[in-house]
Amino acid sequence: MREKILNYIEKNSRVELKELAVLLGTTEAEIAQELADMEAEGIICGYHTLIDWDKVTTDRVNALIEVRVTPQRGHGFDAIAERIYKYPEVNATYLISGGYDLLVSLEGKTLKEVSSFVSQKLSTLEYVISTTTHFVLKKYKDHGTILNGETNDERMIMTP
C-alpha cells in the first residue's frame, strides 16, 4: 500500500484523502495513517510544486556545476559536500561516479548570482580543486513531466 500511495502522490500530492482512498480501494483513515508514518520516518520529505518558471519570469537561470574535490581523511566527501549544500542558493547536491565528484544544482538565480557564487564562494573553498559550470538552456522534461507537452486524444470517438 505504501508504494501505491507514494507512486500516486509523487505525481499529484494535492489529491484529497477521500479520493485517494477510493482509487486505491482502502479507507481514508489508513491513508492518513500511512502518510503520517512516512512523514515521521522521513520517507516523504516534502510536497513541492513543479513550476515552469520560464512562463513566469525571464531572468532566472539554472546551472549544473561539476565540482572536483580532494576527499578528507576520516570524512570522505561528506564534509565538503555539507559545506556546499548549506548555501541556500544550492538546490541539490549529489556525489557522482566518473570524471568529477560532486554535481551541484543552482535553480532560479540570475546569471550574475550564479557567477558570483561560483567564483567567490565555491571555487575558493578549501579542498575544491576545480569547477565546470553548465547553464541550462531549455527544460524539456522535469520530474517525469514533459513541459509544454501537448496531449491530444487522437483516437476515434467510438470503437467497439
Partner: peptide
C-alpha cells in the same frame, strides 16, 4: 450497432466520449 451512433457523435463539437474500446 455502434456505427449510427458514431456518425452522429463525431459530427458534434466538444463531445466528451467514454465510448472508446482501446
Amino acid at each position: 450497432g455502434i456505427r449510427k451512433f458514431f456518425d452522429i457523435a463525431s459530427e458534434m463539437k466538444d463531445v466528451i466520449s467514454l465510448g472508446v474500446g482501446e
